[in-house]
Amino acid sequence: MHVNLVDQYVRGTSTIHRLDTRVKVTATLLLILSVSLMPAGKWVAFAFLWAITLVLTAAAGIPIGSVLRRSLIALPFALAALTLLVTVPGPPLLELPRVGWTVSEPGLVRFASILLKSWLSVQIAIILAATTHLTDLLWALNSLHVPRLLIAIISFMYRYLFVLAGEGFRMARARQARSAAPAGSQSTGGNLAWRARVTGWMVGQLFLRSYERSERVYQAMAARGYRGQIRRLDPPPLSPRDLMLGALPVTAYAVILAAANWC
């Protein structure tokens, strides 16, 4: 049996799907960089940036609703900026009852800008993840000279996450199958302490199994000539068309960024 963890990737044939992955990764990084460089409080500029990401989302053929829903994962992280509300000095906007802290106007502007920036950045990253298979992404990172060890770690994680999830799932099922209720009792599987003990034991088992598997995987790699250095095929040359397509949104973002700094 195997467990289907959901891939972020959405199959498709749009221009964005077919764009050279190296161009996509670089463009994504540049877009996120320009978002983070935006001065606070330039709402019109933010609206333009968002409009462009919406165009990109539509061009990739991904449902906008799903992008928005998934982009909510940015929220909890942005809440770390909540303290800005009360720590940035400036004209007071309102006073929090009881604690006596004052929310300043520039504090609110900075907080809202950070919220918007992280939300936009996540949307841009989602477009990349939804149009690029992780294996292509790894390949692109390799040709962009990200250290191979790091890439190898990500690729093993991706490969064995599924195997590990399958093993965990089978163990949980085996536990359930043996957690019968005594006659006349409603609850199955013993009391909380018992369950905690079993769970702890299962985690330990899972660790041991993974450890032993890593040894066998290493043997399988060694058997096929691995001597400590992962080798890959060299990437094909970049096409000018892909470069130009990638430059389009980046230029648009750069223009908006410049304008926002100017005005």
Binding site: L134, T135, S155, R159, R213, A220, G225, R231, L233
Partner: peptide, 20 residues
Amino acid sequence: DDQLFSPTVFDDVAFGPLHM
């Protein structure tokens, strides 16, 4: 699952020849 350690089938089958 020990033998196939790469994300795609191509990568796995290419692993031996690449390391040769």
